[in-house]
Write a protein that binds this DNA or RNA. Structure first.
Lengths: 209, 209
DNA sequence: GTCTATATCGGGATAGAC
DNA sequence: GTCTATCCCGATATAGAC
């Protein structure tokens, strides 16, 4: 399942980028379709030629944010590298994906509006995301590289760190987040440099343009 | 500045508790005053006898969430214990405060709606909260207990971990969060048990009923 | 595919009786 | 201090011309 940016027309993409910026600051409910249209430079009904409902914009943003990390997890799992190494690489690339996507911020992926039934498909994606992290932590613990702790708690803590990327200024870099996360997870934090080298050496398909 | 729950009438307190539950799940904008009133068991205008605007409810919740941690930070600063010890105690009690307050969840304290100018006083409280964490990290680094890293990044990472307390199920305990945070911050994670004992031994005024 | 005009609805807030 | 009734506004979404 590729599912990349190119599936959107240039006009739809401009709407998505603009909407994401506004939503990240004000929240989804507080961002009106008029706000989005004004920021794009069109009248409000023009939005509806590209998205048949405001909710569809949020759904598209969540999908754009999660599909790359989920696909990357599948790819990394096939490499059968140590789980701690896989986790390191996956974290770094997932964080970079969110940082570099001008229309994506973690706050959008975790906004409470997603609880509504309209967004059950997107909640499913978030659940898959959760399982990916839990699975990597469990594997790393079995292999002995990650210290013993509740793997569900560990996965929650790692995911919570994604929020450090958030607005206003993106002060925390992906590298800092990965370092902090793995320092908290590893049985022997002194082994981090070696794990990082191995993670950087893994070969996966490149991120989309 | 005590500023405790008792400043609210029982009816107002029921509104706050109910509103917080709904807001935590659906978000502030998606929670109507009718929703809150229905959950409380009254008609919608009855809310306005206790709060003159819906925004006042959110402001009250933010204040209830932050005042205890801010007051505790002042108290701990006066003890002149090592900063790593102070940070440990402050983190644990602040997390427990949020966990135990039935109407408080970190997602409410970080909702994007707070960006509106109406909530500048509450944003100021959040900024003080931020400075408290940064200050403790910087002091701990000067004293050598915390490892060298950008203190602003470190503070962001620690605050991001607060989100691990969030809904749906509160799977991550304050103790787990504190352990993870300090493991990531300490120069020598092996010293954590000793710091924890010292933190537990600090004497501060008890949390409110 | 963008415009103007507009239908429709839900939500915040107020008035005034009890 | 809670009720019913209501005002008013802003927001989503649609209709139809260009």
């Amino acid at each position: 399942m590729p599912a990349e940016i190119s599936r959107w027309s240039p006009a739809a993409e401009r709407i998505l980028r603009t909407a994401a910026q506004l939503i990240a600051v004000r929240g989804f409910a507080a961002t009106s379709t008029r706000d989005i249209a004004a920021a794009v430079g069109v009248q409000q009904p023009a939005i509806y030629k590209h998205f048949s409902a405001k909710d569809d914009i949020l759904a598209a943003l969540v999908q754009l944010g999660l599909e790359r990390p989920l696909a990357l997890a599948d790819e990394l799992a096939a490499l059968s590298a140590p789980a701690a190494v896989t986790l390191h690489r996956w974290l770094r690339e997932s964080l970079e994906h969110l940082r570099d996507s001008p229309y994506l911020l973690i706050s959008i992926l975790t906004t409470p509006e997603l609880q509504r039934t309209r967004f059950s498909a997107e909640v499913d994606l978030l659940a898959r995301f959760d399982r990916v992290v839990i699975g990597m932590v469990e594997a790393g613990q079995r292999e002995g590289d990650l210290r013993a702790m509740n793997p569900v708690s560990a996965a929650r803590l790692v995911q919570a760190l994604f929020d450090a990327l958030a607005l206003p200024e993106i002060a925390v870099s992906p590298a800092e987040i990965v370092e902090f996360a793995l320092t908290g997870l590893l049985s022997d934090p002194a082994g981090l440099p070696e794990i990082q080298r191995a993670a950087d050496a893994l070969v996966v398909s490149p991120a989309s343009p």
